[in-house]
């Protein structure tokens, strides 16, 4: 683990979707990142804050979990979807931040009708979540063959890659716009504060204080 200052903590944040909501947390905790942080054009990936013991890094959502699992970052903010998919024993998720709320769902073509839910022992699914998808279907005795995509899953059924997708759904507007229909909810999703296991065990003083402050800020917002 590399710290920019001895004892400094690194918090990994996901680019994109939930940053607007998470910015409210930073304000509530009086964490003020350096000015570049909110500049979408910046090439910087690592940011100082007004708190000498805390740095921020901005990475892709799945990479937050990886950085925290390996201890490159001590804390992070990751969706339940990412945690289910990566499933590391070295990542703790002590605080539900109640932001980035949506659901992970199975969807299929709207024109295929309600009877399309599989009754065979095999199904093909396009998804960013192959592990979660296989586990979900395995629990029903169905073998899921997954096609891993990084985005634009909604194209897969229409273009013949796979009849089904597993993806995050919030309003359902994207599904509708692509002639898809939500068939089954797999899990409710929200973002969690995650902590590296080794850091949780060995750096109780500073780190546990920060976790407690996030917990208070969450309770205050609820």
């Amino acid at each position: 683990m590399t710290d920019s200052a001895p004892g400094a903590l690194t918090l990994a944040l996901p680019k994109g979707r939930i940053m607007a909501e998470f910015a409210a947390f930073l304000r509530r905790l009086d964490i003020v990142p350096e000015a570049d942080f909110f500049d979408e054009k910046t090439r910087k990936l690592q940011f100082a804050t007004n708190q000498p013991g805390l740095n921020l890094i901005l990475v892709r959502s799945f990479d937050v979990a990886t950085f925290v699992a390996f201890g490159g970052a001590h804390l992070g903010v990751a969706g339940h979807d990412v945690l289910m998919e990566t499933g590391s024993n070295d990542v703790y998720a002590p605080v539900d931040l109640h932001i980035g709320k949506c659901r992970l769902s199975l969807a299929g073509r709207a024109d295929a009708g309600a009877g399309q839910l599989v009754s065979s022992s095999h199904v093909r699914v396009a998804t960013k979540y192959p592990h979660t998808t296989r586990a979900h279907f395995a629990a029903k005795g169905i073998q899921a063959e997954t096609i891993k995509l990084s985005g634009a899953m909604e194209l897969a059924p229409m273009l013949g890659l796979a009849p089904f997708i597993v993806d995050l759904v919030s309003s359902g507007a994207t599904l509708k716009a692509n002639n898809l229909v939500e068939l089954e909810k797999i899990a409710d999703i929200s973002s969690k504060l995650i902590v590296n296991r080794t850091a949780y065990k060995t750096r109780r003083a500073g780190l546990h204080d920060l976790v407690a402050r996030f917990e208070e800020a969450t309770d205050a917002a609820a």
């Binding site: 683990m1 390996f70 201890g71 296991r197 080794t198 850091a199 065990k201 060995t202 750096r203």
Partner: peptide, 10 residues
């Protein structure tokens, strides 16, 4: 369980 802050994992 045994840890060292510099080493990732137990």
């Amino acid at each position: 369980t045994i840890f060292n802050p510099a080493i990732s994992g137990e």
